[in-house]
Amino acid sequence: MSTNLLTLEGVHTHIGAYHILHGVDLVVPRGELTLLLGRNGAGKTTTLRTIMGLWQASQGRITFAGEDITRLNTPAIAQKNIAYVPENMGIFSDLTVKENMLLAARNAKHAVQMDEARLQWIFKLFPPVEKFWNHPAGKLSGGQKQMLAVSRAIVEPRDLLIIDEPSKGLAPAIIQNMIEAFEQLKASGVTILLVEQNIHFAQQLGDTVAVMDNGRVVHAGSMQTLAEDTALQQSLLGLAL
């Protein structure tokens, strides 16, 4: 079995007349948290959306668990036990927290059919999900919506969790809660690919890191190596961690 759960090889993506990804090479090791960093407009979100089939790669190959998924549609990719939390979270505002969770639980038609032990685990990770179980999701704060979005993604066991900027716009206390939750998710064996701008968040969680610029991966390696090399941070990101 390959140590890499997800691999992108020479992936190009065009959106209309625009050529966004220019040959992305990326590996996501099994059981680790891989961070995708880069300035705004570097191609990070496009990479995630291309992996999920929301935008089709115009060239290159995407492999998941040894299977070529490049040409699969989004529902077929999700069926491979891959969950995606977009930057806008995709919450159904008019539905309750419970109804949002139930929609993501493919093996349950009613709330009582959801895995109770797994729900209790999620409630410990994100207490507001339990607290506001019967409340409309649209009434939640930004941090609570993000917790719901991640909870929905893990309501069933997943092999790969792909999340776009989970800490964006959150208060420091909520970010720390999110860090602790992701540490537990990692410990449970879930492989995670994360786009993140919060450097504190990245440093605490990342095992491996890929830095993007102009639609390409320009650096890949361990998060620790990047965190310890100020000159490398400046050259790649224009900042110091």
Results as ranks from 00 to 15, higher is better:
112 V>R: 13
112 V>F: 08
113 Q>M: 05
113 Q>D: 14
113 Q>P: 08
114 M>V: 12
114 M>H: 02
114 M>C: 09
115 D>R: 08
115 D>T: 02
116 E>H: 12
117 A>I: 04
117 A>S: 11
117 A>M: 02
118 R>P: 01
118 R>W: 05
118 R>A: 03
118 R>F: 05
119 L>A: 04
119 L>D: 10
120 Q>L: 07
123 F>K: 06
123 F>I: 01
124 K>A: 14
126 F>H: 07
126 F>W: 10
127 P>T: 10
127 P>I: 09
127 P>W: 06
128 P>D: 09
129 V>C: 08
130 E>Q: 15
130 E>H: 14
132 F>D: 13
134 N>A: 11
134 N>F: 04
134 N>S: 11
135 H>W: 03
136 P>K: 02
136 P>T: 02
137 A>F: 07
137 A>S: 13
137 A>K: 04
138 G>K: 13
138 G>S: 13
138 G>R: 10
138 G>N: 09
138 G>C: 09
139 K>Q: 15
139 K>Y: 14
140 L>D: 03
142 G>M: 06
145 K>L: 01
145 K>P: 00
145 K>Q: 15
146 Q>K: 11
147 M>F: 10
147 M>L: 06
148 L>H: 09
148 L>E: 11
149 A>I: 10
149 A>V: 07
150 V>S: 04
150 V>F: 08
151 S>M: 06
153 A>E: 02
154 I>H: 01
155 V>P: 01
156 E>Y: 11
157 P>W: 06
158 R>I: 12
158 R>V: 14
158 R>L: 08
159 D>R: 12
161 L>N: 00
161 L>V: 01
162 I>R: 01
164 D>Y: 01
164 D>K: 02
164 D>P: 00
166 P>L: 09
166 P>S: 11
166 P>V: 09
167 S>W: 05
168 K>Y: 12
168 K>P: 02
169 G>C: 07
169 G>W: 07
169 G>Q: 06
170 L>M: 12
170 L>I: 11
171 A>E: 12
171 A>I: 03
171 A>F: 05
172 P>M: 07
173 A>L: 13
173 A>Y: 14
174 I>T: 15
176 Q>T: 14
177 N>K: 14
177 N>E: 15
178 M>Y: 13
178 M>C: 13
179 I>T: 15
179 I>Q: 15
180 E>P: 03
180 E>A: 15
181 A>F: 13
181 A>H: 12
181 A>D: 12
181 A>M: 10
181 A>R: 12
182 F>A: 10
183 E>C: 08
183 E>M: 14
184 Q>A: 14
184 Q>C: 10
184 Q>V: 13
185 L>R: 08
185 L>Y: 10
185 L>G: 04
185 L>W: 09
186 K>C: 03
186 K>T: 01
187 A>E: 12
187 A>K: 14
188 S>M: 06
189 G>E: 04
190 V>P: 04
192 I>N: 03
192 I>H: 03
192 I>K: 03
193 L>D: 07
193 L>C: 10
193 L>R: 05
194 L>R: 07
194 L>D: 03
196 E>S: 04
197 Q>W: 00
197 Q>M: 01
197 Q>T: 03
198 N>L: 01
199 I>V: 12
200 H>W: 00
201 F>W: 00
202 A>G: 01
202 A>K: 00
202 A>H: 00
203 Q>C: 02
203 Q>E: 12
203 Q>A: 09
204 Q>W: 02
204 Q>E: 13
205 L>H: 01
206 G>H: 02
206 G>A: 05
206 G>D: 01
207 D>K: 09
208 T>N: 14
